[in-house]
């Protein structure tokens, strides 16, 4: 779910409007709770509450959505640690394979994409690193800390390819989102 504000209000509204057609895509607040996999605190639990016809609350004033933040589940974080040690040994194939196991567990977690991009950068593939940074960026909408991390990866990847002006811009975006 997109927004996470005014859960109670919208739930009441939802019940009141239960006769209305159900929009398939129901933007609106969803009570959050850590999933067992714990991929995103503040992000909605996949599937949970999606059936509810939850309309957006009255248009004004809309409280700004509180920033999202992501963390890695125990499983992915173990895999990331394992991949880092492979990267450190220069075994990039093994690191990539291990990170893809993490990706299959949490395909929407920008942190996993940032990690993959970092590994690619270490292996010398700056173009893939940049693309993965951009993928992370699109997944991190509403999560400034992760966006900042993604911009930093993009900046480093651009710098590695000698595109210093764009790299500088990316760095500034990263700094604006989360001061270093």
């Amino acid at each position: 779910m997109m927004h996470r504000a005014g859960g109670c209000l919208s739930l009441v509204l939802a019940l009141a409007l239960a006769a209305c057609a159900t929009p398939p895509y129901a933007p609106g607040p969803v009570p959050t709770s850590g999933t067992a996999g714990g991929e995103a605190t503040g992000a909605g639990q996949p599937g949970a509450g999606a059936a509810l016809p939850v309309p957006a609350p009255a248009p004004s004033p809309v409280p700004p959505p509180s920033p999202k933040s992501y963390r890695l589940s125990a499983a992915t974080s173990a895999l990331v640690t394992q991949a880092r040690s492979a990267t450190a040994k220069g075994d990039f194939d093994a690191a990539a394979a291990t990170l893809e196991r993490a990706l299959r567990i949490e395909p929407d977690n920008p942190l996993v994409w940032i990690e993959m991009g970092r590994m690619r950068l270490a292996s010398g593939d700056a173009r893939q690193a940049e693309n993965m940074g951009r993928r992370a960026l699109s997944l991190a909408a509403g999560a400034p800390r992760e966006q900042s991390g993604a911009w930093r990866l993009v900046a480093d990847a651009l710098r590695a390819r000698g595109r210093n002006v764009e790299a500088q811009e990316a760095s500034e975006r990263a700094d604006a989102l989360a001061p270093p």
């Binding site: 779910m1 997109m2 997944l139 991190a140 909408a141 509403g142």
Partner: peptide
């Protein structure tokens, strides 16, 4: 499977 619900671009 899980719902299609990626974060909306800002």
């Amino acid at each position: 499977t899980t719902s299609w619900q990626p974060p909306m671009p800002e």
